[in-house]
Structures are given as C-alpha cells and as structure tokens.
Amino acid sequence: MNESAPPALIYVVDDDHDLSCSLTRMLIRTGYRAEPFVDPAQLLAAYDAGPAACVLTDVMMGEMDGFTFAERLRVIDPAAALIFMTAWPTTANAVDAIRRYGGVDYLEKPVDLDRLLAAVEESVAWSTHRRRQLMRTARLSPRERDVFRLLIKGLSSKAIAAELNVSPKTVEDHRAQISAKTETSGLAQLISLGEPAGF
C-alpha cells in the first residue's frame, strides 16, 4: 500500500451485525479504513459523504438483496469496486455477480480470509486506477468531449472536422488540449481512458 496516501476506505454490508463488525475490525487491523453497515439502504443514503474504494456486500439480505444494492451503488459511484459474499453460492449468481454487476470477486461463506484480502487489495487498485481515469476525462470541455468521443471511434481529424462542422485546425487544437488535460500521448491511451469514462 502507498504509505503517503490515506488508507483506502472499505464498506462492509451484511445483515448479520456481528459478522459485518468482525469483517470491519479485520480490515482495520490489515491497514484499511472500514465501516460496517447492516442495511444497504443506510449505506446508499450516507454514501456521498465518503466514496469508498471497495464495498464488500452479502447477497442474501432482508429488504434489498446484494445485486439490487450493487445496481444502485453503480449509479452513484461507477468507481467503487464490489465484492460479493454468499452462504448459498450458485453458478448463475456467480456469473451475474462478475459479468452483470462488475464484481471483483464472488466469495462463499464461511469466508476464506486470504482470498478475501487478495480480492480487497485487487479492488482497491482497480478503484484507484478507475477514479484517476475518471478525473482526467472530467476536466474536458463539452466540445473537447465531442472530439474525444469521435477520436476514440477511430475518425481522422479531417473526418471529425466534417462531422462537427469546424475547421481541421480547430480539431487539432482540441486534440492538443485533450492530450494535455488527460495526460495522454497517443490514440491507444485515449481509447483506454474512453471506456471507463462511459464514452
């Protein structure tokens, strides 16, 4: 872990209070900041105050299940990594957890601690990277975003100029701005930024 940065924040959601607290204490002892939640709705309500690097959530819960919670969290924060835990693992749920809800891992209870810690570490790295990517594209102006979208589609400056009804010179200026703001040097790097930013 990077010593200079503050420890990554992890939220633990499980309707068993003792288990969520145990997991939280274990994560704190490992060096993370962590907070337990019994009700996923409470976490969603309080989420804006502290975006997390990773949310560790149970699948079978009372009012709202882990997948519904994941869908709502993705809307609020596309850069938070998700790890699912369940006492009744099924293949269909495992596939959904990873492919549909973008989970980093799908763990069965009782939880294998080493695997959990490895998944959390991977989650934190993924979340940090994605947040950085999002921040870089967030600085673009609306016009620069248009040019960016067409660039990563593979269009040349000339084609973009025709599409946006501007001169090729203007497109070149926008390209220079985009490279400077996103700290990229080349189309390949731009494309890798475009996908997580939702372009």
Partner: peptide
Amino acid sequence: IHEISQPLSTIAI
C-alpha cells in the same frame, strides 16, 4: 446453511 455460515464466518475471523 445461511444461518450457520454467518456465525461460522464470524468465528473464523
């Protein structure tokens, strides 16, 4: 299984 996995997870940790 759900009921037993919860306390077992806590005990393991």
